[in-house]
Design a binder for these strands. Structure first.
Lengths: 194, 194
DNA sequence: CGATTTTTTGAATCATATCAACGTACGTGG
DNA sequence: CCACGTACGTTGATATGATTCAAAAAATCG
C-alpha cells in the first residue's frame, strides 16, 4: 500500500526519491480503513490529517439550514482528501467528509507533513503540482456552474469524470452538479433520446 | 512601484529578501500600463506573463456561443492576474482578461518566473501561500454557487468583497454571480426594503 | 449638452425545484 | 434462498425563481 503512494509521488515530481526519503514517507503516513458511510471529518471538527486514498470512494459536502447536502468534491482511488481550509488553518470545518465505499487511507498529520515537505523535495514538488491542478480544475468548475445549463454540466461531467457516474449514486451526482435528483433523472432521459 | 511588489512579497513569506534578491526581482518584472478596456489576454492567445496589479481593476471572463460574457474572476490593486492554466501549460486560453480601470502592472515571463522562484525563497513561499488561498477561495465559491440562492450569493459578496461592488458596474457583478443584470437589480431593490 | 452606458421596470416564458406517489433494486436477517 | 425493508430512481403536477426581451429612466463621459 505504501508502494502506491510512493509511485504516485514520483510520477508527479521530477526529483527522484532516495531510499532514506522513502523511509521518511513510510514513517509519516499511517494506514486507516473506513467502512461505508463512516466519517473522515465532521462539520465543526478540525481537519487533523491529509489523507491519501489508496482505494475507495468518498465525498466532501456541506449541509444547509434546510438539511440538504451539497457535495463540493468527490474523491476516489489515488486522490487526496482533506478540507484544505481547515487543515491549513487548523480551524473548525464547515464540511463533512465520509466514505461511500469501503476505503483505505494513508494519513499524515500537519506537523509531519510540513517536515516531510522540507525533507523530501519530491513531496514539495508534488504538492505544487497538485495545487496547480487544483486551481485550474476549480476555475473550470466555477466557469461551468455560472455559464452552463444543468444539461451541459451533466454532459461535461460525463466527458471529464465518467468514473464518478459509475461509483456514486445518481442523487449524489445531482448534488455535485448543483441540481435536484429529479432534474438529473429527467435530463438523462432526455439526453438518451437524442 | 517595485516597492509595492517587494512589500507585498515580504508580507506573504517568512524568509527575508536580501538586497541581491530584491535586484533579481526588479530585473524579472517589467512595468506595463493598460488603458481602460484594453486587453491583457484574448481568447486563443497563450498567457505569456504573470502580472502583478500595482493599481487598477481587471476582470477575467469567457464568452459563450450566444455571445454572453461570464466573469470568473475580478482583480484589483495588489492582486495577481493571469490565466493560470494557459500560463502553466502554455496552451491557448479560453478566457479574456481586460482592464476596467486604468491599470499599472508588473509582468514576469514564465521562464523568468521559474528561475526567480528557485533563486528567491520568499517568492516560492509567496507562491505557495497564494495557491493555498486560491484553492480555499475557489472551494468556497463553488460551494456558494451550488448551495445558495442568487440573493444569498449577492449578500455574501457584499460581506466578503464589498470593494468589488464599488469598482465594477452592476451588470459585471451580476455576471460574476452567475445571474442576469435584471435579476440583480431586482434582488437589490428587494434587499433594501428589508 | 448630446451620446453612450448602465440600471430599472414590466410582461411573457422557461428552467428547475418541490412535493407526492410509485416502481425498482439491493442487501440483510430469518 | 426468499422476503422484507430501505435506499434509489422515475414520473407527474404544480410552484417558484430567474431569464429574456423591450422600453424607459438614470447616470456617466467627453
Amino acid at each position: 500500500m505504501y508502494d502506491i503512494l510512493l509511485t504516485y509521488i514520483s510520477q508527479r515530481s521530477v526529483t527522484p526519491i532516495t531510499a532514506e526519503q522513502a523511509a521518511l514517507i513510510r514513517d509519516a503516513f499511517k494506514p486507516k480503513k473506513l467502512r461505508k458511510k463512516q466519517y473522515l471529518l465532521q462539520e465543526g471538527d478540525v481537519c487533523k490529517y491529509l489523507s491519501f486514498m489508496v482505494k475507495g470512494a468518498m465525498r466532501q459536502y456541506s449541509i444547509d439550514e434546510k438539511g440538504n447536502e451539497h457535495i463540493v468534491r468527490f474523491g476516489i482511488d489515488q486522490w487526496w482528501m482533506a478540507d484544505r481550509e481547515s487543515f491549513e488553518m487548523q480551524t473548525p470545518s464547515r464540511y463533512n467528509i465520509d466514505a461511500w465505499e469501503e476505503t483505505e487511507l494513508l494519513q499524515v498529520s500537519r506537523p509531519a507533513y510540513l517536515s516531510l515537505r522540507d525533507a523530501v523535495p519530491a513531496v514539495m514538488e508534488m504538492t505544487q503540482e497538485l495545487d496547480k491542478r487544483g486551481s485550474i480544475a476549480a476555475q473550470k468548475r466555477i466557469q461551468a456552474v455560472i455559464s452552463y445549463t444543468a444539461e451541459e454540466r451533466y454532459l461535461d461531467l460525463l466527458k471529464t469524470h465518467p468514473y464518478f457516474l459509475q461509483r456514486f449514486p445518481q442523487h449524489m451526482i445531482a448534488s455535485y452538479l448543483g441540481i435536484s435528483a429529479e432534474t438529473l433523472s429527467r435530463i438523462r432521459k432526455q439526453a438518451l433520446s437524442k
